[in-house]
Design a protein around this nucleic acid. Structure first.
Lengths: 109, 109
DNA sequence: CGGTATCCTTCTTGATACTG
DNA sequence: CAGTATCAAGAAGGATACCG
């Protein structure tokens, strides 16, 4: 997408694709999550997309990646403070979306 | 996009494409805006996209369309109360995006 | 003025297989 | 276990032209 000078669009460029929010959501539920654990939670995501999204979230410091040099390998993902800072904002969107959903569906009874 | 059961994703399906927020933004600035006026404000948008977006926003009752049967034709677009209800939520995203932008750019001085 | 119709490009996402 | 490589598909968006 285009590099936006609007903070709202800037935010959406970071968290607005298909899998970013579901990933953040699942990371919110636990302190720490492993790669395949996360993959199982996100029904239908491919390795490519999961890795790509995690890398991007990492670049923006929303997610922390910790790799243990063990065998078999072990990598843990968790939210940073920056990532957690999204929570109140997402709650606003959540409420608006909920109301909107009701309005969009109530006449179709 | 997939029809989501998550209110956040539901909201983003409505307002999350390339032009929806810019359109809503420009409609916020004035009480009432005409089609071509809106088009000129949104640099680079095509008729197709503008019409498509406006129709979709109308379907979700975020935007009101009033057509005058004059010659030449005249159509006015404005935000509904539902559309205006997005404002506080977008402010939250705005602030988060602004902070994020700073964090993403401060080390590149 | 306020759109439609048609065609085309590009960006995002997915499927499948394989590796240190 | 936690990925990468390669190839293919689909959806979103754009270009250009035309209409009531």
């Amino acid at each position: 997408m285009y590099d936006s000078d609007c903070p709202v669009l800037y935010a959406l460029n970071i968290i607005g694709q298909k899998w970013k929010l579901p990933i953040l959501w699942h990371l919110m539920l636990k302190d720490v999550t492993r790669y395949n654990e996360l993959k199982r939670s996100l029904n239908g995501i491919t390795n490519i997309m999961l890795t790509k999204c995690l890398r991007e979230l990492e670049e923006h410091s929303l997610v922390k990646r910790v790799e243990y040099d063990t065998k078999p390998p072990k990598v843990e993902y968790s939210l940073t403070e920056r990532g957690k800072a999204l929570l109140p904002t997402l709650n606003g969107l959540y409420k608006w979306g909920e109301e909107q959903y009701k309005l969009d569906h109530e006449e179709i009874d």
